[in-house]
Amino acid sequence: MEKKNSNRKIRLTYLSGFALCLLLFVSMSASSPAPDTVILGKWEEISWEYEKLPGNPEIRADKTISDNAKREITRDLVIHQAETWEFRPNGTLVLYDSKGATLSEWTLKSRGNILKIYNGKNTPEHYNLQVLNQDEMILYFNTDLQAKGIAKMKFKKIHQENYAQKIQ
């Protein structure tokens, strides 16, 4: 009788433990939207900076990346000269620059912290999605320029109403 009670108690403890884990998972995942939905929409590029730059401290003091350097860094990249990025739900990424728009494909990897961009011609490019919320997106990527620095790209989300106001 005592053994039966003990078994029941253990079973109950284990079940409660697993149920608690499930509850934790559900409540955490419901607390914020998935990155692949947050990223959808239009993003305007605000700034380019070096997050990490080895070398002379004087050079390191100013981390802003000039337009020339930016052109040099992105010369062989899909995102070359793109000013506005539009992530569509079907996995298409539209990159707008002063000349027009180009199409690529996007997908998120790992836990949603790696952005993969592929245009079918070059090898896929991977960017580290450091910050992603309803208003701001920060991407990091390694660049060979300036002895392997880490470039930081900041974006601001173009909300539909803002965009409509801008057009008007």
């Binding site: 995942s29 607390s31 836990r111």
Partner: peptide, 19 residues
């Protein structure tokens, strides 16, 4: 790290992986 940043979705995913 994800919990400290308040990235609850990512925290849930990693929690599920550990589980």
């Amino acid at each position: 790290e994800e919990i400290s940043k308040g990235n609850w979705y990512q925290a849930a995913v990693v929690f599920a992986w550990i589980f």
